[in-house]
Design a protein around this nucleic acid. Structure first.
Lengths: 168, 168
DNA sequence: ATATTATTTCAGAAAGTTTTGAAAATATAA
DNA sequence: TTATATTTTCAAAACTTTCTGAAATAATAT
Protein backbone atom coordinates (compact mmCIF):
# COMPACT_ATOMS: atom_id res chain seq x y z
CA UNK A 1 0.00 0.00 0.00
CA UNK A 2 1.24 3.48 -0.85
CA UNK A 3 1.42 6.35 1.64
CA UNK A 4 -1.36 8.48 0.14
CA UNK A 5 -3.76 5.59 0.17
CA UNK A 6 -2.81 4.59 3.71
CA UNK A 7 -3.32 8.16 4.93
CA UNK A 8 -6.78 8.32 3.40
CA UNK A 9 -7.66 5.00 4.97
CA UNK A 10 -6.44 6.17 8.35
CA UNK A 11 -8.41 9.43 8.15
CA UNK A 12 -11.62 7.64 7.17
CA UNK A 13 -11.29 5.11 9.96
CA UNK A 14 -10.47 7.66 12.63
CA UNK A 15 -13.53 9.58 11.45
CA UNK A 16 -15.92 6.69 11.68
CA UNK A 17 -14.51 5.65 15.03
CA UNK A 18 -15.22 9.17 16.27
CA UNK A 19 -18.78 9.15 15.05
CA UNK A 20 -19.46 5.79 16.69
CA UNK A 21 -18.46 7.41 19.97
CA UNK A 22 -20.54 10.54 19.52
CA UNK A 23 -17.78 12.77 18.14
CA UNK A 24 -18.38 14.68 14.93
CA UNK A 25 -16.92 12.75 11.99
CA UNK A 26 -15.23 15.77 10.43
CA UNK A 27 -13.71 16.82 13.73
CA UNK A 28 -12.13 13.38 14.05
CA UNK A 29 -10.93 13.47 10.42
CA UNK A 30 -9.25 16.85 10.85
CA UNK A 31 -7.62 15.49 13.96
CA UNK A 32 -6.39 12.42 12.07
CA UNK A 33 -5.01 14.57 9.25
CA UNK A 34 -3.09 16.79 11.66
CA UNK A 35 -1.85 13.78 13.62
CA UNK A 36 -0.06 12.36 10.60
CA UNK A 37 1.20 15.68 9.23
CA UNK A 38 4.82 16.32 10.12
CA UNK A 39 4.16 20.07 9.87
CA UNK A 40 1.29 22.36 10.90
CA UNK A 41 -1.35 22.97 8.21
CA UNK A 42 -3.42 25.98 7.15
CA UNK A 43 -7.21 26.11 6.88
CA UNK A 44 -6.75 26.05 3.11
CA UNK A 45 -4.73 22.83 3.22
CA UNK A 46 -7.24 21.11 5.51
CA UNK A 47 -10.09 22.13 3.19
CA UNK A 48 -8.19 20.81 0.21
CA UNK A 49 -7.14 17.48 1.74
CA UNK A 50 -10.55 16.64 3.20
CA UNK A 51 -12.66 18.35 0.54
CA UNK A 52 -14.72 20.29 3.07
CA UNK A 53 -15.93 23.88 3.27
CA UNK A 54 -14.26 26.79 4.99
CA UNK A 55 -17.05 27.08 7.56
CA UNK A 56 -16.91 23.43 8.45
CA UNK A 57 -13.13 23.61 8.87
CA UNK A 58 -13.34 26.71 11.03
CA UNK A 59 -15.97 25.27 13.39
CA UNK A 60 -14.33 21.90 13.84
CA UNK A 61 -10.82 23.27 14.28
CA UNK A 62 -12.17 25.54 17.00
CA UNK A 63 -13.78 22.55 18.72
CA UNK A 64 -10.51 20.61 18.53
CA UNK A 65 -8.76 23.57 20.14
CA UNK A 66 -11.39 23.54 22.94
CA UNK A 67 -10.60 19.90 23.53
CA UNK A 68 -6.90 20.86 23.65
CA UNK A 69 -6.12 18.35 20.92
CA UNK A 70 -4.98 20.99 18.45
CA UNK A 71 -3.17 24.28 18.77
CA UNK A 72 -2.76 27.42 16.68
CA UNK A 73 0.59 28.67 15.43
CA UNK A 74 1.29 32.22 14.31
CA UNK A 75 4.33 32.22 12.04
CA UNK A 76 6.41 35.37 11.76
CA UNK A 77 5.64 37.28 8.58
CA UNK A 78 2.65 35.03 7.89
CA UNK A 79 -0.92 36.19 7.93
CA UNK A 80 -2.52 32.78 7.93
CA UNK A 81 -2.86 30.61 10.99
CA UNK A 82 -1.31 27.15 11.12
CA UNK A 83 -2.70 24.22 13.10
CA UNK A 84 -1.01 21.18 14.60
CA UNK A 85 -2.19 18.25 16.70
CA UNK A 86 -0.89 16.98 20.01
CA UNK A 87 1.23 14.00 18.94
CA UNK A 88 1.68 12.26 22.27
CA UNK A 89 -1.10 9.71 22.01
CA UNK A 90 -1.34 9.22 25.75
CA UNK A 91 -1.97 12.95 26.18
CA UNK A 92 -4.60 12.77 23.44
CA UNK A 93 -6.34 10.02 25.36
CA UNK A 94 -6.16 12.00 28.62
CA UNK A 95 -7.57 15.15 27.02
CA UNK A 96 -10.51 13.22 25.57
CA UNK A 97 -11.11 11.42 28.87
CA UNK A 98 -10.99 14.68 30.81
CA UNK A 99 -13.31 16.46 28.39
CA UNK A 100 -15.92 13.73 28.28
CA UNK A 101 -15.86 13.24 32.02
CA UNK A 102 -16.47 16.96 32.47
CA UNK A 103 -19.21 17.18 29.85
CA UNK A 104 -21.04 13.92 30.50
CA UNK A 105 -20.09 12.00 33.61
CA UNK A 106 -20.13 14.98 35.97
CA UNK A 107 -23.69 16.06 35.03
CA UNK A 108 -24.90 12.46 35.33
CA UNK A 109 -23.44 12.22 38.83
CA UNK A 110 -25.41 15.31 39.83
CA UNK A 111 -28.68 13.96 38.38
CA UNK A 112 -28.28 10.59 40.10
CA UNK A 113 -27.61 12.32 43.38
CA UNK A 114 -30.78 14.44 43.01
CA UNK A 115 -32.94 11.51 42.00
CA UNK A 116 -31.91 9.53 45.06
CA UNK A 117 -33.80 12.12 47.13
CA UNK A 118 -37.14 10.85 45.74
CA UNK A 119 -39.98 10.68 48.27
CA UNK A 120 -42.06 7.58 48.79
CA UNK A 121 -42.90 4.70 51.01
CA UNK A 122 -40.04 2.21 51.14
CA UNK A 123 -42.59 -0.60 51.26
CA UNK A 124 -43.88 0.34 47.83
CA UNK A 125 -42.19 -2.08 45.38
CA UNK A 126 -41.70 0.62 42.74
CA UNK A 127 -40.03 3.00 45.15
CA UNK A 128 -37.84 0.25 46.53
CA UNK A 129 -36.72 -0.92 43.08
CA UNK A 130 -36.01 2.63 41.97
CA UNK A 131 -33.90 3.36 45.02
CA UNK A 132 -31.96 0.11 44.76
CA UNK A 133 -31.12 0.70 41.09
CA UNK A 134 -30.07 4.28 41.73
CA UNK A 135 -27.96 3.26 44.67
CA UNK A 136 -26.15 0.62 42.61
CA UNK A 137 -25.59 2.97 39.69
CA UNK A 138 -24.33 5.60 42.06
CA UNK A 139 -21.83 3.18 43.57
CA UNK A 140 -20.44 2.11 40.19
CA UNK A 141 -20.37 5.61 38.72
CA UNK A 142 -18.59 6.97 41.79
CA UNK A 143 -15.95 4.29 41.49
CA UNK A 144 -15.57 4.97 37.77
CA UNK A 145 -15.28 8.63 38.54
CA UNK A 146 -12.53 8.06 41.06
CA UNK A 147 -10.72 5.71 38.66
CA UNK A 148 -10.83 8.35 35.92
CA UNK A 149 -9.61 11.03 38.28
CA UNK A 150 -6.68 8.85 39.20
CA UNK A 151 -5.83 8.15 35.59
CA UNK A 152 -6.17 11.82 34.62
CA UNK A 153 -3.83 12.85 37.41
CA UNK A 154 -1.34 10.08 36.78
CA UNK A 155 1.34 10.14 34.14
CA UNK A 156 1.79 7.60 31.40
CA UNK A 157 4.58 5.65 32.97
CA UNK A 158 2.63 5.17 36.18
CA UNK A 159 -0.37 3.93 34.30
CA UNK A 160 1.40 1.68 31.85
CA UNK A 161 3.95 0.24 34.20
CA UNK A 162 2.01 -0.18 37.39
CA UNK A 163 -1.58 -0.63 36.38
CA UNK A 164 -1.29 -2.58 33.18
CA UNK A 165 1.36 -4.95 34.46
CA UNK A 166 -0.96 -5.69 37.33
CA UNK A 167 -3.83 -6.43 35.01
CA UNK A 168 -1.83 -8.89 32.96
CA UNK B 1 -39.86 14.91 44.13
CA UNK B 2 -42.47 12.24 43.49
CA UNK B 3 -41.71 8.80 42.06
CA UNK B 4 -43.37 9.27 38.66
CA UNK B 5 -41.47 12.46 38.06
CA UNK B 6 -38.18 10.94 39.20
CA UNK B 7 -38.67 7.94 36.91
CA UNK B 8 -39.30 10.18 33.91
CA UNK B 9 -36.21 12.20 34.73
CA UNK B 10 -34.11 9.06 35.04
CA UNK B 11 -35.37 7.67 31.71
CA UNK B 12 -34.69 10.94 29.89
CA UNK B 13 -31.19 11.21 31.31
CA UNK B 14 -30.25 7.61 30.61
CA UNK B 15 -31.49 8.19 27.06
CA UNK B 16 -29.42 11.28 26.43
CA UNK B 17 -26.36 9.68 28.00
CA UNK B 18 -26.79 6.81 25.54
CA UNK B 19 -27.05 9.08 22.54
CA UNK B 20 -23.93 11.00 23.55
CA UNK B 21 -22.10 7.67 23.42
CA UNK B 22 -23.51 6.60 20.06
CA UNK B 23 -26.29 4.39 21.42
CA UNK B 24 -29.82 4.90 20.12
CA UNK B 25 -31.75 7.16 22.51
CA UNK B 26 -34.88 4.98 22.52
CA UNK B 27 -32.88 1.83 23.13
CA UNK B 28 -31.36 3.44 26.21
CA UNK B 29 -34.75 4.71 27.38
CA UNK B 30 -36.34 1.27 27.12
CA UNK B 31 -33.40 -0.07 29.05
CA UNK B 32 -33.87 2.57 31.75
CA UNK B 33 -37.59 1.83 32.01
CA UNK B 34 -36.99 -1.89 32.44
CA UNK B 35 -34.17 -1.25 34.91
CA UNK B 36 -36.49 0.52 37.33
CA UNK B 37 -39.49 -1.78 36.83
CA UNK B 38 -39.83 -4.32 39.61
CA UNK B 39 -41.63 -6.65 37.17
CA UNK B 40 -41.18 -7.54 33.49
CA UNK B 41 -43.20 -5.42 31.04
CA UNK B 42 -45.06 -6.15 27.80
CA UNK B 43 -44.50 -4.39 24.48
CA UNK B 44 -47.82 -2.63 25.08
CA UNK B 45 -46.66 -1.24 28.42
CA UNK B 46 -43.35 -0.03 27.01
CA UNK B 47 -45.17 1.70 24.12
CA UNK B 48 -47.55 3.34 26.57
CA UNK B 49 -44.90 4.52 29.06
CA UNK B 50 -42.51 5.92 26.47
CA UNK B 51 -45.12 6.97 23.90
CA UNK B 52 -43.41 5.18 21.03
CA UNK B 53 -44.64 2.99 18.18
CA UNK B 54 -44.89 -0.78 18.10
CA UNK B 55 -42.21 -1.07 15.42
CA UNK B 56 -39.77 1.11 17.30
CA UNK B 57 -40.32 -0.92 20.48
CA UNK B 58 -39.86 -4.22 18.67
CA UNK B 59 -36.60 -3.20 17.00
CA UNK B 60 -35.01 -1.68 20.06
CA UNK B 61 -36.02 -4.48 22.40
CA UNK B 62 -34.46 -6.95 19.97
CA UNK B 63 -31.25 -4.90 19.97
CA UNK B 64 -31.22 -4.86 23.78
CA UNK B 65 -31.59 -8.63 23.74
CA UNK B 66 -28.63 -8.87 21.33
CA UNK B 67 -26.59 -6.85 23.79
CA UNK B 68 -27.74 -9.28 26.51
CA UNK B 69 -29.08 -6.40 28.57
CA UNK B 70 -32.69 -7.59 28.37
CA UNK B 71 -34.35 -10.97 28.29
CA UNK B 72 -37.70 -12.39 27.23
CA UNK B 73 -40.10 -14.16 29.56
CA UNK B 74 -42.88 -16.50 28.48
CA UNK B 75 -45.47 -16.69 31.23
CA UNK B 76 -47.63 -19.79 31.51
CA UNK B 77 -51.10 -19.24 30.08
CA UNK B 78 -49.99 -15.89 28.63
CA UNK B 79 -49.73 -15.17 24.94
CA UNK B 80 -47.75 -11.96 25.20
CA UNK B 81 -44.04 -11.77 25.85
CA UNK B 82 -42.65 -9.98 28.88
CA UNK B 83 -39.29 -8.23 29.02
CA UNK B 84 -36.97 -7.53 31.92
CA UNK B 85 -33.53 -5.94 32.23
CA UNK B 86 -30.39 -7.30 33.80
CA UNK B 87 -30.37 -5.54 37.18
CA UNK B 88 -26.79 -6.20 38.23
CA UNK B 89 -25.22 -2.94 37.12
CA UNK B 90 -21.73 -4.40 36.96
CA UNK B 91 -22.97 -7.03 34.52
CA UNK B 92 -24.66 -4.29 32.50
CA UNK B 93 -21.34 -2.48 32.28
CA UNK B 94 -19.52 -5.68 31.25
CA UNK B 95 -22.06 -6.51 28.53
CA UNK B 96 -21.76 -3.02 27.06
CA UNK B 97 -17.96 -3.12 27.26
CA UNK B 98 -17.84 -6.53 25.60
CA UNK B 99 -20.23 -5.53 22.83
CA UNK B 100 -18.50 -2.28 21.96
CA UNK B 101 -15.06 -3.84 22.06
CA UNK B 102 -16.24 -6.51 19.63
CA UNK B 103 -18.01 -4.08 17.30
CA UNK B 104 -15.56 -1.20 17.34
CA UNK B 105 -12.19 -1.78 18.96
CA UNK B 106 -11.51 -5.14 17.31
CA UNK B 107 -12.00 -3.81 13.73
CA UNK B 108 -9.82 -0.79 14.53
CA UNK B 109 -7.02 -3.05 15.73
CA UNK B 110 -7.14 -4.89 12.40
CA UNK B 111 -7.04 -1.65 10.37
CA UNK B 112 -4.11 -0.26 12.35
CA UNK B 113 -2.21 -3.46 11.85
CA UNK B 114 -2.79 -3.34 8.08
CA UNK B 115 -1.83 0.32 7.78
CA UNK B 116 1.47 -0.29 9.51
CA UNK B 117 2.50 -2.32 6.45
CA UNK B 118 2.64 0.87 4.34
CA UNK B 119 5.51 1.04 1.86
CA UNK B 120 7.81 4.01 1.64
CA UNK B 121 11.24 5.39 2.25
CA UNK B 122 11.87 5.82 5.97
CA UNK B 123 13.83 8.98 5.23
CA UNK B 124 10.71 10.62 3.82
CA UNK B 125 9.33 12.82 6.63
CA UNK B 126 5.71 11.97 5.79
CA UNK B 127 6.34 8.25 5.88
CA UNK B 128 8.31 8.52 9.09
CA UNK B 129 5.63 10.60 10.83
CA UNK B 130 2.89 8.25 9.68
CA UNK B 131 4.72 5.20 10.96
CA UNK B 132 5.55 6.78 14.31
CA UNK B 133 1.93 7.81 14.90
CA UNK B 134 0.62 4.39 13.95
CA UNK B 135 3.17 2.66 16.12
CA UNK B 136 2.18 4.78 19.13
CA UNK B 137 -1.53 4.28 18.56
CA UNK B 138 -0.98 0.57 18.15
CA UNK B 139 0.88 0.41 21.46
CA UNK B 140 -1.84 2.23 23.37
CA UNK B 141 -4.73 0.42 21.73
CA UNK B 142 -3.14 -2.97 22.36
CA UNK B 143 -2.73 -2.14 26.01
CA UNK B 144 -6.31 -0.89 26.23
CA UNK B 145 -7.42 -4.06 24.54
CA UNK B 146 -5.62 -6.23 27.03
CA UNK B 147 -6.99 -4.18 29.93
CA UNK B 148 -10.54 -4.62 28.63
CA UNK B 149 -10.03 -8.33 28.14
CA UNK B 150 -8.88 -8.63 31.71
CA UNK B 151 -11.85 -6.67 33.03
CA UNK B 152 -14.30 -8.65 30.91
CA UNK B 153 -12.90 -11.93 32.17
CA UNK B 154 -12.70 -10.85 35.78
CA UNK B 155 -15.64 -10.99 38.13
CA UNK B 156 -17.04 -8.10 40.07
CA UNK B 157 -15.51 -8.82 43.40
CA UNK B 158 -12.04 -9.22 41.95
CA UNK B 159 -12.28 -6.00 40.04
CA UNK B 160 -13.89 -3.87 42.71
CA UNK B 161 -11.93 -5.16 45.63
CA UNK B 162 -8.49 -5.51 44.16
CA UNK B 163 -8.29 -2.96 41.40
CA UNK B 164 -10.39 -0.12 42.72
CA UNK B 165 -8.91 -0.23 46.19
CA UNK B 166 -5.53 0.08 44.56
CA UNK B 167 -6.60 3.11 42.57
CA UNK B 168 -7.89 4.93 45.63
C1' DA C 1 -59.19 -26.10 9.74
C1' DT C 2 -60.15 -20.72 10.83
C1' DA C 3 -60.02 -16.88 14.02
C1' DT C 4 -57.65 -14.16 17.15
C1' DT C 5 -53.82 -12.04 19.18
C1' DA C 6 -49.01 -10.83 19.13
C1' DT C 7 -44.67 -9.75 16.74
C1' DT C 8 -41.68 -8.35 12.97
C1' DT C 9 -40.52 -5.96 8.92
C1' DC C 10 -39.52 -2.16 6.12
C1' DA C 11 -40.74 1.90 2.90
C1' DG C 12 -41.63 6.34 3.56
C1' DA C 13 -42.00 10.27 6.92
C1' DA C 14 -40.14 12.85 10.57
C1' DA C 15 -36.55 14.40 13.35
C1' DG C 16 -31.89 15.35 14.21
C1' DT C 17 -27.19 16.51 12.74
C1' DT C 18 -23.76 18.28 9.84
C1' DT C 19 -22.22 21.04 6.06
C1' DT C 20 -22.18 24.70 2.86
C1' DG C 21 -21.33 29.22 1.30
C1' DA C 22 -22.02 33.92 1.33
C1' DA C 23 -22.04 37.85 4.34
C1' DA C 24 -20.08 39.91 8.47
C1' DA C 25 -16.30 40.48 11.32
C1' DT C 26 -11.47 40.73 12.17
C1' DA C 27 -6.66 41.36 11.27
C1' DT C 28 -2.80 42.96 8.82
C1' DA C 29 -0.69 45.62 4.96
C1' DA C 30 -0.11 49.58 2.13
C1' DT D 1 -7.03 55.91 6.28
C1' DT D 2 -8.47 52.22 2.66
C1' DA D 3 -7.51 47.85 0.58
C1' DT D 4 -6.69 43.06 0.97
C1' DA D 5 -6.32 38.64 3.25
C1' DT D 6 -8.19 35.63 6.61
C1' DT D 7 -11.46 33.86 9.84
C1' DT D 8 -16.01 33.42 11.84
C1' DT D 9 -20.89 33.09 11.83
C1' DC D 10 -25.27 31.22 10.86
C1' DA D 11 -29.55 30.36 7.85
C1' DA D 12 -30.67 27.21 4.65
C1' DA D 13 -29.57 22.85 2.27
C1' DA D 14 -27.90 18.23 2.37
C1' DC D 15 -27.33 14.28 4.68
C1' DT D 16 -28.05 10.71 8.35
C1' DT D 17 -30.57 8.45 11.68
C1' DT D 18 -34.62 7.17 13.82
C1' DC D 19 -39.51 6.33 13.96
C1' DT D 20 -44.08 5.27 12.37
C1' DG D 21 -47.71 2.43 10.95
C1' DA D 22 -49.72 -0.73 7.99
C1' DA D 23 -48.92 -5.13 5.89
C1' DA D 24 -46.75 -9.60 6.43
C1' DT D 25 -45.57 -13.18 9.41
C1' DA D 26 -45.94 -16.04 13.43
C1' DA D 27 -48.03 -18.15 17.38
C1' DT D 28 -51.78 -19.82 19.99
C1' DA D 29 -56.85 -20.65 20.72
C1' DT D 30 -61.24 -22.42 19.24
Amino acid sequence: MQLGEAKQEFIQNWGSLGSQWGINRTMAQIHALLLISPDPLTTEQIMEELQISRGNTSMNVRELINWQLVKKHHLAGERREYFSAEKDIWKVFLHILRERKKRELDPVIRVIHDLQQVNGNEKDRDVKEFKVVLHDINKLVSKGDRAMETIIRSDESWFLNTFLKLLR
